[in-house]
Simulated assay, not measured.
Amino acid sequence: MPIISMFYGIIIRLYLLDNLHHNLPHIHAKYAEFEASIGLADGDVLAGELPRKQLRLVQAWIELHRDELLADWELAVSGENPYKIDPL
């Protein structure tokens, strides 16, 4: 599960071959003891939870980097390592 970005104590990961669980392009965000799967299309939480402030930061980051994230998603679901993406 490669880390693709880190900012404000939030770790963003894309799991390899992870298109079976939610079947939507998504990332995994971890902050302290919280973790959530967040959709790339709309920034909605698919599973888990993050504090409101950190969720808003992740959603803003997704908005800024959506094209890069979707390209990384394609790499990850085919089993290749995704590229790092600039933090917020």
Rank of each mutant, 00 (worst) to 15 (best):
R13M: 06
S5G: 11
K53D: 15
E80L: 11
L20S: 09
G79R: 02
N23P: 10
M1K: 01
L88E: 06
R13Q: 09
L14F: 00
Q59E: 08
I27W: 00
R13K: 10
M6F: 00
N81V: 10
I3Y: 00
R66H: 12
E35K: 15
D44K: 12
D86G: 04
L75E: 07
H28F: 00
E33L: 12
H21E: 10
E68D: 13
H22K: 02
Y8E: 15
P51V: 14
G43K: 07
A36N: 04
R13H: 08
L17P: 07
L17D: 13
N23E: 15
R56L: 09
F34S: 14
L57W: 09
E33A: 12
L55F: 12
G39K: 02
L88A: 11
K53S: 15
P25A: 00
L40F: 01
Y15G: 09
S37I: 03
M1Q: 01
A71P: 08
R52D: 08
G39T: 07
D72S: 15
S78M: 13
G48P: 09
L75M: 08
D67I: 06
L69E: 10
K30T: 15
L20C: 05
K53F: 14
D67K: 03
K53I: 15
L50S: 05
F7D: 10
D18W: 00
L16V: 06
K84S: 13
P82Q: 04
L55N: 07
S37K: 07
H26I: 12
D86F: 02
F34V: 11
D86M: 04
Y83G: 13
P82C: 06
Y83I: 14
E49N: 14
I85Y: 01
G39V: 06
K84M: 08
E68L: 14
M1C: 03
W73E: 03
L55D: 09
L75A: 08
N23H: 13
G43S: 08
D86Q: 07
D86I: 04
S37T: 07
Y8Q: 15
D67G: 02
Y83L: 15
D42Y: 14
L55T: 08
I85E: 00
L14P: 01
I38T: 05
L64G: 11
W61Y: 01
E63G: 08
L17R: 13
D72N: 15
D42H: 13
R66S: 10
S78H: 14
I62M: 03
E49T: 11
L75K: 10
W61C: 04
K30D: 15
E63N: 07
E68H: 12
I3S: 04
A41M: 09
Y83M: 14
E35P: 11
D72E: 12
H65W: 07
W61N: 04
S78Y: 10
I38A: 05
G9Q: 07
D42V: 14
I38Y: 04
G43A: 10
A36Y: 05
E74T: 13
H28T: 07
K30G: 14
D67P: 02
A71F: 13
A60S: 02
N23V: 13
P25K: 00
A41D: 12
R56G: 06
I11M: 07
H26T: 11
L75C: 06
S37Q: 03
K53R: 15
A76I: 08
I85N: 00
G43P: 09
E49R: 12
A29D: 03
L55G: 10
Y15E: 06
N81D: 09
I4R: 03
V45I: 11
D18R: 01
H28M: 00
